[in-house]
Computed example of a mutant assay.
Amino acid sequence: MDPSARAIFNQHFTAEKYETFLTSLNDGLPNPVPFRVAETPIFLTDDFRDKLVAAGNSIIDTVLQPGFKELTERSIPNKWRLPNENDHPHFIALDFGVCKDADGQIVPKLIELQGFPSLYGFQVHLGNTYREVFNIDTNKTIYSSGLNEQSYLELLKKTILGPYQPDEVVLMDLNAPEQKTAVDFYITQRYLRIPVISLSDLQQQGDQLFYEVNGEQKRIRRIYNRLIFDEIDGDDHIFNQVVDIRQPLDVEWITHPNWFYRISKFTMPYLHGDHIPKTQFLHELIQIPADLENYVLKPLFSFAGQGVIIDVKPDDIKNITDPENWILQQKVNYEPVIQAPDGGVKAEIRLLYLWPDGNTKPTLAISLARLSRGKMIGVRYNQDFDWVGGTITFMSK
């Protein structure tokens, strides 16, 4: 992490500035940001930025390889497999822990990956607010691949809207206004002018979908999908009450829900390199490692850290009845490299890629980051701390 930028930021940081930052961040939003936002961004050195980019490129190469779809067919639960899948995901998110290797070098280690959108709208607003309130050096940027705010938003628009008009594309989630990520929905709406709807707002005529606005039905050509099926997995009767989106419908998905499973924890055992922790499907485990304390047990089909067993015991493994749906992954030890006024803080950085139709490969566009002092990264594990929560990375242009 960039020590000079960190020293300047900390020297000028005050609690009053942070309060001003939060006020500015919430200004104009329908509701205040519902999750904790950290007091500081992360300042990357050129060296660590380049390590992140290289690590991301090697993982993207695996996704691009011929046969990736065949390799990941088993990842999609039959009950959530949708027809009309396209040939690539429109969004890829790669989560890296900031760690220290055996030589004492600060390195990225892959934690998880997702073929699913993240806070592509909110991060622009967040970066702008940090810059304005804390007077971040104009030589530093939140964008990758040579993008600036204008070209980033053009790429986002190309990815989500494609050839359609804004009112033909809907951002859809389960009870969208109630989601913790709703702040991102409405900022995205501000940038792209697309409607935000809930699953229950969908109306069906034949194989076509519609939504209603001011008493008029509007045809949906594309769904910018923010619905994670895990959220409705326990409700066996939901599609008796709303449109069954698993049907063959005349609508495009951005991105198609099958990619949520293809690019996920399921992909981890197929990845290799210094930045990849050793990962095995549990049903392929020949014997339990002698150093089991250095591993974590993860269910394939869960999100936000749910179901993860951190302190694994042999009986935890023996008692699992569906080992084909679990992975055993070497623990990643985060290094507290972010210097807060009272000590080090751990960090995780999510690289966010955009892949519009017509492009041959995804573009690394922007980042999301999280700071933690707790046992796990994530807001729910850091509720009693400061200098933790959601943030963004700044790096040299």
Results as ranks from 00 to 15, higher is better:
residue 172 M to Y: 03
residue 195 P to H: 02
residue 146 G to N: 12
residue 121 G to I: 02
residue 339 Q to A: 15
residue 298 K to H: 03
residue 18 Y to W: 11
residue 345 V to E: 02
residue 262 R to T: 04
residue 210 F to S: 00
residue 344 G to H: 10
residue 387 W to F: 14
residue 277 P to N: 09
residue 306 Q to L: 12
residue 347 A to D: 02
residue 138 T to R: 09
residue 49 R to V: 01
residue 165 Q to G: 09
residue 27 D to T: 15
residue 119 L to M: 04
residue 280 Q to F: 10
residue 160 I to E: 07
residue 35 F to Q: 07
residue 313 K to L: 12
residue 251 V to G: 01
residue 174 L to C: 05
residue 37 V to W: 06
residue 358 G to N: 04
residue 55 A to C: 13
residue 108 P to G: 06
residue 26 N to R: 09
residue 157 K to M: 13
residue 272 H to Q: 07
residue 201 D to C: 09
residue 362 P to C: 06
residue 359 N to P: 08
residue 340 A to D: 09
residue 56 G to N: 03
residue 12 H to C: 07
residue 231 E to M: 13
residue 48 F to I: 11
residue 193 R to S: 15
residue 102 A to M: 12
residue 366 I to L: 09
residue 259 W to P: 00
residue 235 D to V: 13
residue 379 V to G: 15
residue 86 N to E: 12
residue 164 Y to N: 11
residue 380 R to Q: 15
residue 154 E to Q: 15
residue 151 S to R: 11
residue 278 K to E: 15
residue 264 S to D: 06
residue 290 A to L: 13
residue 82 L to C: 07
residue 290 A to W: 09
residue 380 R to V: 15
residue 159 T to R: 10
residue 353 Y to N: 04
residue 37 V to G: 09
residue 146 G to A: 10
residue 317 I to S: 02
residue 71 L to F: 08
residue 89 P to H: 06
residue 276 I to K: 04
residue 236 D to N: 15
residue 183 V to E: 00
residue 292 L to C: 07
residue 213 V to N: 13
residue 53 V to M: 12
residue 21 F to G: 07
residue 205 Q to Y: 10
residue 84 N to D: 13
residue 213 V to R: 15
residue 89 P to I: 08
residue 265 K to T: 00
residue 119 L to D: 05
residue 315 D to P: 03
residue 131 R to I: 06
residue 366 I to N: 01
residue 350 R to N: 13
residue 210 F to G: 01
residue 66 P to S: 06
residue 193 R to E: 14
residue 266 F to V: 05
residue 142 I to N: 02
residue 109 K to W: 01
residue 246 R to C: 01
residue 211 Y to M: 04
residue 17 K to L: 14
residue 302 S to Y: 06
residue 202 L to D: 05
residue 8 I to P: 06
residue 97 G to A: 14
residue 51 K to L: 11
residue 17 K to Y: 10
residue 94 L to P: 12
residue 247 Q to M: 09
residue 5 A to F: 10
residue 104 G to S: 10
residue 137 D to P: 03
residue 269 P to C: 04
residue 348 E to T: 12
residue 244 D to K: 04
residue 233 D to P: 02
residue 337 V to N: 08
residue 108 P to N: 02
residue 108 P to L: 05
residue 373 R to I: 08
residue 205 Q to M: 09
